[in-house]
Amino acid sequence: MNMPRFWREISGRYNLIGSRCGNCGEYFFPKRDICPKCHRKSMGKMESVKFSGTGKVISYSIVHDPHPAYSDMRPYVMAIIELDEGPKLTSQIVDCEPEDVHTGMRVKATFRKLAEDGKEGVIFYGYKFKPE
């Protein structure tokens, strides 16, 4: 993934910045420009919000056969996490044994290295989650 493409999404990936609909109050991550429930009524009313970074595991998988850029970490745990404010996202779970991860487990966001673009390329950072 090239640098500008990653750089553009830094606010979401570094700081968990998403959106809240000023019409219905629903939260979204990543940022959205329009609320899928309010449609036109949300136009111009989507506000930036920073999420608390705490939530729970909805489901997970232990990845044994990853994309080559992630193979140093294998096996690693991928999970869908529901943030306490409501939105869900996909992230790795770290700082625990894969066997200890379970559905419903409380987790919190932590800032980590995600991957490297080859031996001399850019290092990508962003959120992973760890046990709360």
Binding site: M1, F6, S61, V63, Q92, A115
Partner: peptide, 8 residues
């Protein structure tokens, strides 16, 4: 980008 694969 977070490491998810189609299979996972």
């Amino acid at each position: 980008v977070f490491g998810a694969t189609y299979a996972s």
